[in-house]
């Protein structure tokens, strides 16, 4: 018998709700300094203020829809998301062909792998000073850093994916008369997709970490910038509201990517339920 989904959801909510209640009780009892550890209610109120439009609705300024989405949080989230997407695309678009080449050709692998191995352990964060020197402030250095964060996971997984392709598929394809190009496009590439997509998922995860860091350093909007700004004003409730938003956005991105992967890999054994 299958478990009812709402029951599972309800069960999952018990512990967080309990913790929230405990936190609220501690705050109400005056156990915590509200300046540095605000109550959940204060955070929720602040989150709403952060989300809601700042000005009252005025038809002269724009449509109702633009007003609804005129809140600071929405702008920050869109800014962060834009950087993640752009940075990820730049990184993945460079990593994918290179990974396919390095996976398929032993020669290319021998030439390029040492360089990859030397550069890969350098965390994208370590490129911050250089990225500011090269690109100044704003989106360019952020996108540069994010693309670095996405580049290596996609690259390494693509290489591994192509290299692990089972020889039996190549033999079957050759037996059916396939030439090298057809084998690459219709056998090696699809056979490598489970690996490539897990690289994509890790790459997007890394991109999301790097976006927050880069916004704290080089950009003056976005969720990362906002929580650092809130610290300067001692708005601890806004810091936590921002962190909560970052978590939600990360969760939304990851479940979106997982959904796409599940669809693309519907033929794959590993996803059987």
């Amino acid at each position: 018998m299958r478990r009812k989904p709402w029951l599972t959801a309800l069960q999952g909510a018990v512990v967080p709700l309990l913790l929230l209640a405990l936190w609220q009780a501690a705050s109400s009892a005056g156990l915590a300094n509200a300046k540095i550890m605000p109550s959940p209610v204060a955070v929720a109120v602040r989150w709403w203020a952060y989300l809601a439009p700042a000005d009252p609705y005025d038809p002269a300024v724009g449509s109702y829809l633009t007003w609804i989405f005129s809140g600071e949080l929405i702008h920050d989230a869109i800014g962060s998301l834009y950087r993640v997407v752009m940075g990820f695309l730049v990184g993945a678009v460079l990593a994918l062909p290179l990974g396919l080449l390095m996976g398929a050709s032993t020669k290319a692998f021998r030439w390029l792998n040492p360089l990859v191995e030397v550069l890969r352990p350098i965390p994208p964060i370590a490129y911050i000073p250089l990225s500011i020197l090269w690109f100044g402030l704003g989106n360019p250095p952020a996108i540069f850093l994010i693309s670095l964060g996405a580049f290596f996971p996609v690259l390494v997984n693509t290489i591994a994916g192509v290299r692990q392709v089972d020889g039996i598929y190549l033999r079957a394809a050759r037996n059916l008369g396939a030439g090298p190009l057809t084998i690459f496009r219709r056998v090696m590439l699809p056979a490598a997709t489970p690996y490539i997509l897990s690289g994509v998922r890790i790459g997007i995860g890394t991109a999301f970490i790097v976006v927050i860091v880069s916004e704290m350093i080089a950009v003056n909007n976005g969720l990362g910038f906002r929580i650092l700004e809130a610290r300067e004003y001692f708005w601890s409730d806004k810091i936590i509201a921002g962190m909560f938003t970052i978590g939600l956005l990360g969760l939304a991105i990851d479940s979106g990517v997982t959904r796409i992967n599940t669809h693309l890999l519907r033929w794959h054994r590993g996803l059987e339920h």
Partner: peptide
């Protein structure tokens, strides 16, 4: 070399799982 004039059937089936 291998060619389609000699079709091969493998013990492991060797079907392309993505098709």
């Amino acid at each position: 070399g291998p060619g389609p004039d000699r079709g091969m059937v493998f013990q492991e089936y060797a079907l392309f799982p993505w098709m």
